[in-house]
Structures are given as structure tokens and as C-alpha cells.
Nucleic acid binder design. Structure first.
Length: 548
RNA sequence: GGCCUGUUGGUGAAGCGGUCUAACACAUCGCCCUCUCAAGGCGACAUUCACGGGUUCAAAUCCCGUACAGGCUACCA
């Protein structure tokens, strides 16, 4: 068989040969040790934590080595493509301050583009043609029905399914057979002529997993689909070669088809990059089973979800880093003020088994992170969030900045020796400061005592309250009221023999607290009343009295 | 079904043949502090590393089976 003739029959009109592209995309001129990584999402309109998890690892390895980090859009599957998805991808990465050196929609774009795979169709076809001319690939005219038939037969015979060996009916077709179909204008795909023997296994080094057993490939995998667009396998080989990726970092779901990629690189005569297969982020679902994050089942893991709740992007990065590299957490504990970019990230410090997404831990990290904010930083952060998601309430919060300053100072514990750690994310902060604003009705906690007592306590408090009282005087008055009704002001005595008293000042404080704020738990009550002002404080107590 | 990967506490996870009655962090619980909450301080929390065999003077660590989990087995990535 004259393979060159076959190649010309399949692709008669390609403008260039592979050498043209090899020359067009020469080796990158980079310092020694520099690594080139990419993140290559599909534009499905949905980005979740898992995508960011991988991208952050890519970014760190690339930039830490003074290398290049680029964005490639894998839009080869038209069925899954969603309009506006690329914009979403870009905006999410931008929000998390993940910087690309080149790639789709990046300015300047870079010299190794285009970075949209659909725009590279001719490049892939050129390499496919070369493989055909060398007898390493061939056209296949099987229809979906025929493929299904083959699979059914294989299942019935209890042999492995797939297009391989004697099942690969177009593998040894004659030139005439192909020519006839082409003349009829029948659609076809290009398949690789696999030469591997699945009985033979090799150990291949993975930068994360260590030595992995790989079985030789005998599947004649599709390289170019019938619409002229490559499959992931082929696009990966061509792109990562021409764009000179040095480390292919991707999810471990690719471990199963690694053998195909290895054979492809070999067939094409490409230098093999390093590979790093990361573990998959998992979650525990309602039934208590651990499973991979799925975009269909876990919309709450969309990055947009966290953005809308106002999670701070930097805190999310800290969380991701702690699950990405096991030694990060300890480092961060020792260097709480260091920029996380100064942490030495390494692939061999990555976990090997599926990592469970842990919201508690994320929240804890957020609390710690936000507790380091200055008042100004906190306000900038909130301002940005309110502008974006609560535009209508902007004036309520920022119309009276003096009040907001006081609230935040108290809430953050800015005047305390130890900062408070109450704040997790922007929307939660807004919720927790709602009690200062009459505009927002907050849920009222229940009093734990009978109405008679509550009424008396509130009435006494109302008549004795003086705005000018300092914290101590204020508290003494609360104690006095309590003692009148059998509630001790001596906390130590109360704890020692609680049965001897009706209750303690803390119970009295709780009643007043609920009347003023609607909540049982708040920061220091006296300060809250100072912030609210005399009129508002007294009015709220009065309202509470009326409601009884 | 076949192939690959993994399995240390509620969670993330260190550990790479003896120093492991298993680091560290989150969560949880107790005490202290305290007008509540939070924070903070102190303390508790795997005699045991999925299970069963084996190698060894010695195993969470090496070997073999089994179980379980995840992935791949598409003209999806």
C-alpha cells in the first residue's frame, strides 16, 4: 500500500507540512529549569473548585521556576460548548488573581497560538496526514451503528470491547476501498494504528504518583473526528508539543488513557514531557459515600457560588494550597504574614488519594485570614462586595461610615488584645451586622424566662439606663437589677452552687441583649448600645416591652 | 467483565523496616477566663494504621491474596 498516496487522497488541500509548524513554534528561550505548564479547561460554562485546584498547582510550578503558564481552551467538543463560557473562565481566574503569561484572551496573546483548539484544526490535520503517510494512522468509515454492533459481539464473546486488532475492520483496508468511500463523500475519522501489546507492561514515572504501571496500548483510538476536529488525545500530543509544555499536569482520570498518549508521542517522534497526575477532589454526599465532585450534582461547588457568598479569593487559595501541598499548612503557620507566593510548592508534596473537600476547614482559614485585616482593608473588601451583590443597600452601609467603622471595629475586635474571628465571608458579615440597622429585620431569639420577669427586667433597665454611663457603671446597674429578682452578680458563686440562685447576671444580660439586638449572642452589649445611640437603644427596648 | 490507582482518627494528613502506645492542622469534648458569643490558655481525643496471610530479631512501613473506593475502557474531556 502506498501510504503517501492515501494521505494525499484524504487531505489533498493542506497548505503546509509539519516542518512548517515545527519552524513556526521553535523551542522556547527560557532560563534553565524553567517549566512550562498550562491549564486547559473546556468551555462548558462551569468552573468548580477542582479546576482552580489544578490551575493553582500549574501556576505555582510555572511561576516558581520562572517559566510560563498559559491558558488553552479545549473546545473540541461542540456538544458541550456553552456560549460565554470562556468569559466565565477568564473572569473566575481573574477574580482569584491567577495570572496567565499567554493564551486565549490574554494580552499579549503569545507566540504559540492560536490557543483555541478549534482554530488549530489545520495543524492537527497536517500531523494526521503525516502519520497516514507513514502508515501509522488510517481512515475509518465505521458508523455509530457498526461500532455498536462490534461492541455487542465483543460483549457476547466476553472479550475486551473497543476498536483493535481484528475488530478494527478498516485497519487493513485497500486504497481502492477508501477511495470509493471518499468519492461517495462519506464521513470518516482518522484512527491511530496501535502497535502495542497489552500483555506488556511498563513502569512510567509520574511526578506525583511515582512509578505507575502502564499497559501497552492496542486500541486504534480516534485521532480526528468526522468533523475534522481532533479528540483530546491527539490535541494533547500536538499542542503540548508545539507549545512546548514541559510538565503535563492533569487529573488522574487520564491515567487510564496515558498509554495512548505515550504511544502517540512516540509515533510522532515528539520529546515526551513530564507528567503529573493530580488526585481528584471528592465530597461526601447525603448517603455518606465519597465521590468525585460533579458539576451536575454539586452546583454548590461552583466557584461562582463562593464568589456570590463573598468568600475572599485569597483565603480560598490558602485553603487550596493546604490541600495541594501537605507541608503548606505548617509553613503558613510559621509564616502567617508571608505572601503565599513565597511558599516553595512542589509536586512531590501532593497527596495521592482522593481529597475530601472540607467546608469547616475553609471557613476556619477564612476566619483567621480576615482577622488580620485592618479596618480599611475590611471596608474595601465589603464595599466591593456590596457594590456587586447588594447595590441597593449600598447607602445603608456606606452612607454612614462612622457607624460602620465602629461596628467593624467592635466586630473585628480591633481594640482587643486578641482579634475576634467571627467573620467568614462577606455575606455572613453583612448578616451579622444587620442587627445594627433598623432597615434589616433580624430573627428574634426566644427569651428563656417568663414574660412577667422579662417585662420587669426591661422596665427597670429602661428607666435606669444612661447613655453616658461607662462600661462598669452600666454593668453594675445590670447586676443590681438582677439581684432584685434573685439573680446573683457573683459568677463564681453561681457556678459553684447554681441551685442556690434563680440565675446569674448573664441571664439578665441575655434578656436585655435579646431585646436590643434580637440575638442571644453578640459582641459586647454595652458597646453595641453605644454604637446604636441612646434613642435607638431605648426605642428598641420599648418596642420589646410592647411585644410582650 | 478487563485495565489502572488508592485505602492511616469525624476530616485533611505526616510517616518510606526499629526512635510510632503514629507529627501537625481542622472539627469535637472538658476545664479556665467571662454579661452572652467568639477569641485565647490548658487538657482529652488512633495501643493502632481496610482485612487475612507471609518475610524479618523487628512492619503502618516489604511481599502475596481478599475486600472496599475511585478512575479509564466514547467520533467527552
Amino acid at each position: 500500500m502506498d501510504y503517501q498516496k492515501l494521505a494525499d487522497l484524504i487531505y489533498p488541500n493542506l497548505e503546509h507540512d509539519t516542518q512548517y509548524y515545527e519552524d513556526m513554534f521553535p523551542e522556547r528561550d527560557l532560563p534553565k529549569g524553567a517549566q512550562v505548564l498550562r491549564t486547559a479547561p473546556s468551555p462548558t460554562g462551569f468552573i468548580h473548585l477542582g479546576n482552580l485546584y489544578g490551575a493553582l498547582a500549574d501556576e505555582r510550578v510555572a511561576h516558581q521556576s520562572n517559566g510560563v503558564f498559559y491558558l488553552r481552551i479545549e473546545d473540541t467538543d461542540l456538544k458541550r460548548k456553552v456560549d460565554g463560557a470562556v468569559e466565565t473562565i477568564i473572569s473566575v481566574f481573574d477574580y482569584f488573581k491567577i495570572r496567565f503569561d499567554e493564551g486565549a484572551e490574554v494580552e499579549p496573546m503569545g507566540k504559540y497560538g492560536p490557543y483555541y483548539q478549534r482554530q488549530r484544526a489545520e495543524i492537527y490535520q497536517t500531523y494526521a496526514k503525516k502519520l497516514i503517510s507513514e502508515g501509522k494512522a488510517y481512515p475509518c468509515f465505521c458508523t455509530e451503528e457498526e461500532l455498536n454492533e462490534i461492541r455487542e459481539k465483543q460483549t457476547a464473546l466476553n472479550v475486551g470491547t473497543g476498536y483493535y486488532g481484528e475488530w478494527a475492520i478498516w485497519r487493513n483496508a485497500t486504497y481502492e476501498q477508501v477511495e470509493e468511500r471518499i468519492k461517495n463523500g462519506e464521513p470518516f475519522v482518522i484512527r491511530m494504528r496501535a502497535m502495542g501489546n497489552p500483555e506488556i507492561k511498563h513502569t512510567v514515572h509520574d511526578e506525583i504518583k511515582g512509578d505507575v504501571v502502564v499497559t501497552e496500548n492496542n486500541m486504534d483510538a480516534v485521532l480526528i473526528k468526522n468533523d475534522g476536529i481532533p479528540t483530546y488525545h491527539f490535541a494533547h500530543a500536538i499542542d503540548d508539543h508545539l507549545m512546548h509544555t514541559t510538565i503535563v499536569l492533569r487529573g488522574e482520570e487520564w491515567l487510564g488513557t496515558w498509554n495512548i498518549h505515550l504511544e502517540l508521542f512516540n509515533m510522532l517522534g515528539f520529546k515526551l514531557p513530564k507528567y503529573a497526575h493530580t488526585t481528584v477532589l471528592m465530597k461526601i454526599d447525603e448517603t455518606g459515600t465519597k465521590r468525585k465532585l460533579s458539576k451536575r450534582k454539586d452546583p454548590e461547588l461552583s466557584l461562582d457560588y463562593y464568589r456570590q457568598l463573598g468568600y475572599h479569593p485569597y483565603a480560598i487559595k490558602i485553603y487550596l494550597l493546604t490541600i495541594l501541598n501537605w507541608n503548606f499548612e505548617e509553613w503558613y503557620l510559621k509564616n502567617p504574614d508571608a505572601d503565599i507566593e513565597t511558599f516553595k510548592f512542589s509536586l512531590d508534596k501532593m497527596g495521592q488519594s482522593g481529597t475530601l473537600f472540607d467546608l469547616e476547614k475553609l471557613n476556619n482559614i477564612c476566619k483567621t485570614y480576615l482577622s488580620k485585616f485592618s479596618l480599611e482593608e475590611m471596608k474595601d473588601y465589603l464595599r466591593e462586595f456590596v457594590k456587586t451583590y447588594h447595590k441597593d443597600d449600598y447607602d445603608i452601609y456606606f452612607g454612614n461610615e462612622e457607624k460602620l467603622d465602629k461596628i467593624l471595629t467592635l466586630g473585628m475586635g480591633l481594640n482587643l488584645k486578641k482579634r475576634r474571628k467571627d467573620y467568614i465571608n462577606a455575606s455572613q458579615i453583612l448578616e451579622s451586622i444587620a442587627l445594627y440597622y433598623d432597615e434589616f429585620k433580624s430573627q428574634k431569639d426566644e427569651y428563656r424566662f417568663d414574660n412577667e420577669l422579662v417585662k420587669n427586667v426591661l422596665a427597670d433597665f429602661f428607666s435606669s439606663y444612661k447613655y453616658a454611663d461607662d462600661n462598669n457603671t452600666w454593668f453594675e446597674k445590670v447586676k443590681t437589677i438582677g439581684e432584685k429578682y434573685g439573680f446573683t452578680g457573683d459568677m463564681k458563686a453561681y457556678r459553684a452552687n447554681p441551685e442556690q440562685f434563680k440565675g446569674s447576671v448573664s441571664d439578665i444580660a441575655e434578656i436585655i441583649r435579646i431585646a436590643v439586638t434580637g440575638q442571644k449572642n453578640t459582641p459586647d452589649l454595652w458597646t453595641i448600645m453605644q454604637i446604636l445611640g441612646e434613642d435607638t437603644s431605648l426605642r428598641r427596648i420599648n418596642d420589646a416591652l410592647k411585644e410582650l
